[in-house]
Design a protein around this nucleic acid. Structure first.
Lengths: 213, 213
DNA sequence: TAGATTGTTAATCGATTAACAATC
DNA sequence: TAGATTGTTAATCGATTAACAATC
């Protein structure tokens, strides 16, 4: 009755927020202190009203005639996305994609800190990749539980993805970032993002086919 | 007047087609010859009407009471997505992500064949990564033109992405698959797919925040 | 034949875009 | 003050879902 429900932000809005964030960071590094939606919209090729609505979900208020203060706006987005504090994560699959993900320093900026890798291949276990240890997969549930890990990254081949997901669920992991090209069968309350390269490539191919038609 | 325009398929539909494709391939390998939308919808957790509409864009017709013939349906999707013949592509940025992409055998299945990598780092030039040569970036325009390369993959850091894109445009490349976390400034007629890891991570963080709330 | 399934038209839903009053 | 910009309500647009006749 009295609790105002947090308005659920539309997914397209959430997907655009990082773009605003990077843009604003750049503005900030240029010494810019204030910026208007009109300006952002022009530079990012979006509708000004959309920009206003998108930014509004983070709770920020602009000043009519002036615009938005850059620094508080950045903080508002960081806070909304949870990018102001690091969340530890486990990665399963220390192959070439896994290695690339382990080496990507940029995730820290997005609040994600991959602390360890897991693999079932004995030849990989014990090695260090980009400073992170590769552990046997069956150690994951125990460690995840003890370390209160909430996020798991899957970078194994399609065939092994479901097994990797099952182990994560067993360890109490709540959100999975899945780079394997399969849809996972998971409990209702699990959060999943499929990084579907096949889908992106499908869209690219079709658009190219139409463009050169 | 007389030419029936090709109905432009909705992007969400195109993004789902690879999922149907993988599912059908699996059905096929299980010896299944016929499958109904109802069945597909249940397994893939979609609406049956949506499945029918999605499949219809590829031009296939089902048989009332029976369903769809698996093999022709697979071919129809392959054909629609252009996955039945390989398109050669160039990759710029032979860092860890680039290396992972060069090593991923799955792209061939999706009609993409990365034939060479380019980098501006002299220490990488001349090496072979997963059997593909790393060439100096300034050779790209000439080679792209001569080899009629239409697709470019960008896996460089954010700062270098625009420069990589410019070189691709110069070489007559028409479609860019961009893994750098920046939006590129490109001519109108260029096709772009941004593989935006920051966006996916933003959605994951928010959903997790709501789930554990 | 009866019933399951397709193909298509209509209804719903949600996101984007337009219009405009409020404001510094 | 005048005018640019915000915040919000209404209109539009497109995708999803529901309803149902046609069909094998």
């Amino acid at each position: 009755m009295s609790v105002v429900p947090i308005k659920k932000a539309p997914e397209p809005t959430i997907r655009r927020l990082p773009d605003y964030y990077h843009y604003l960071k750049w503005m900030q590094s240029n010494g810019r202190e204030v910026v208007s939606c009109t300006h952002i919209a022009r530079d990012l090729d979006l509708d000004p009203t959309q920009v206003r609505k998108d930014l509004a979900v983070t709770g920020i208020r602009g000043k009519p005639k002036v615009g938005y203060l850059v620094t508080p706006l950045i903080e508002s987005i960081e806070n909304f996305l949870g990018w102001n504090n690091l969340t530890d994560a486990f990665l399963v699959g220390a192959g070439s994609l896994g290695t690339a993900l382990l080496g990507y320093q940029g995730f820290k900026q997005y609040g994600l800190n991959i602390v360890a890798a897991f693999d079932k291949d004995k030849r990989k276990i014990g090695k260090k990749i980009h400073g992170k240890e590769v552990l046997p997969l069956d150690k994951l549930p125990g460690l995840a539980e003890r370390m209160h890990i909430l996020i798991g990254v899957i970078s194994v081949p399609a065939e092994s993805a479901q097994a990797a997901a099952d182990v994560m669920v067993e360890g109490g992991i709540r959100a999975i970032w899945n780079f394997a090209p399969v849809s996972l069968d998971l409990p209702e309350d699990m959060v999943v993002q499929n990084e579907n390269l096949a889908s992106s490539l499908a869209v690219l191919s079709r658009q190219l086919a139409e463009a050169v038609k």
